[in-house]
Design a protein around this nucleic acid. Structure first.
Lengths: 263, 263
DNA sequence: AGATATTTGTTCGTATGTATT
DNA sequence: TAATACATACGAACAAATATC
């Protein structure tokens, strides 16, 4: 079967009215690779060949290769048999690249939870009854990280991170690459956002116990293959979590503002 | 208020065990920018200064700048007062970069619609009653593109693209950056995927009329501020569209396979 | 309009590092 | 160990773009 997606343009439409030579070279090399239907691991021509083929100097070609490398599309190795190789973009790199975009956007906790609330119930509904036992065991192992109440603030933060890991692991089991990536990206965002970090350091009575309770019931539903129940459990959990996070967001925000005002 | 998100790491964890000098420089420059809280439009030191600061040759520094440029984080201009400037990553670039990741994933029409089905009803529910009249008019203008039945296959394809534009425009009105981006990304994917292109060339009786009908009712609900109705309408439409697309996918796929078998 | 200064863009030649054989 | 093949890095020179006077 041929490729699913048409060559994703390196050349951005209105973004780049006049491209520099390295950009032209990067686009040309990319097209060249796509045309040939090259797959991850395949070797590109060496620098010398590329120089000859495109009529550009070494420096220009090297800059072009760096562009492709930054996008995660190739990797390079030195030495004999070395060179540039087609590379499958890793999930981690895709997350980092997309994170750069949202770095400049104003996103609140509510924005993230709006998507989690819409997506994660669908995720677990699809997953119910399809997970092999060893994967469910993996989930249960993550849960042991917050079996007992946290002693310190650091412990509390660690437990909250582990709770996010539970959801990330769950998402990684989805056969839908889009759903998988999107859920994991949102969770990654929660881990990175400073205001969430502050929230995770706060003590919220009953939160941990409630979290464990719903996760146990979720796993039970997943084992039983009851998609409807799994969806309902996740939906309820997301509603509750969203409410708490938004409350805490305003508390922390007020706290933060009064701190800075005092200064 | 300080930045929302912690410095997105250029340095990828396990991805890059030994970094090259340009990568080191790129990461250092990025950190330098983040530390200073520089905003889009701010100017970075010139190549000469960077060379001196990092003790690297011009070519190396330039490769580092290309890396940042490829990620959409800076843009450069020549001439006096020129140089590298912090750049807000554009939505188009973010879409292209993320598209590279999914280029290597096996995604089907069903995967995309699973997410659209989960997200777009939420989108319109949030939008209901908040859209100024001029934006609703914009939506209606897009709808004129498929007022009349298509005469040719090209016309049919154009109309289907316009119908996707309707949804993309709708999504662009969301105040939630994540929801906005995600919906628009999914729609962009539908436009790019070859199998969808094939489907869009096919004649599906009643599809256009049904689409227009639901869109009219949707706009009515949006004007009335009836979020529940808007959500229900969108949900029904997504269910129907998903069903049709998946049916057509299997038809087109069979067709394609028999064609290639014959060869 | 044109000259000039500033800054990035591109090239070439050479030397070094690194992994394979 | 040595030879080889490749990327990596440096430095100097020149070209092109663009703002300012």
């Amino acid at each position: 079967m041929e490729r699913d997606i048409t060559p994703p343009a390196t050349t951005l439409p209105a973004d780049a009215p006049r491209m520099s030579r390295p950009q032209i070279a990067a686009a040309a090399i990319k097209d060249w690779v796509v045309e040939r239907g090259m797959r991850p691991g395949d070797r590109l021509p060496g620098e010398a060949e590329l120089m000859a083929h495109f009529g550009m100097a070494k420096g220009t070609i090297r800059e072009a290769l760096r562009v492709l490398e930054a996008q995660g599309l190739i990797r390079t190795r030195t030495g004999p048999g070395g060179g540039a190789f087609v590379n499958e973009v890793s999930e981690a790199r895709a997350r980092a690249l997309l994170g750069n975009y949202f770095y400049f956007q104003e996103i609140g906790v509510g924005d993230i939870y709006a998507l989690r609330h819409a997506l994660e119930p669908v995720l677990v509904a699809q997953l119910a009854g399809t997970l092999p036992e060893e994967r469910i065991v993996l989930l249960e192992e993550v849960m042991t990280a917050y079996e007992t109440p946290p002693e310190t603030i650091e412990e509390s933060e660690r437990q909250r991170m582990a709770e996010l890991d539970f959801h990330a692991l769950l998402a990684s089991f989805s056969p839908n690459p889009l759903l998988r990536f999107q859920c994991r990206f949102l969770i990654g965002l929660l881990k990175d956002i400073t205001i969430c970090r502050r929230i995770y350091r706060r003590r919220i009575p009953g939160f941990r116990a409630a979290g464990r309770d719903y996760q146990s019931r979720l796993i039970q539903a997943l084992r039983a293959g009851d998609g409807g129940a799994a969806r309902a459990i996740m939906r309820a959990h997301m509603t509750a979590a969203q409410k708490i996070m938004e409350e805490q967001e305003s508390v922390v925000l007020r706290q933060f503002l009064s701190e800075t005002d005092a200064r």
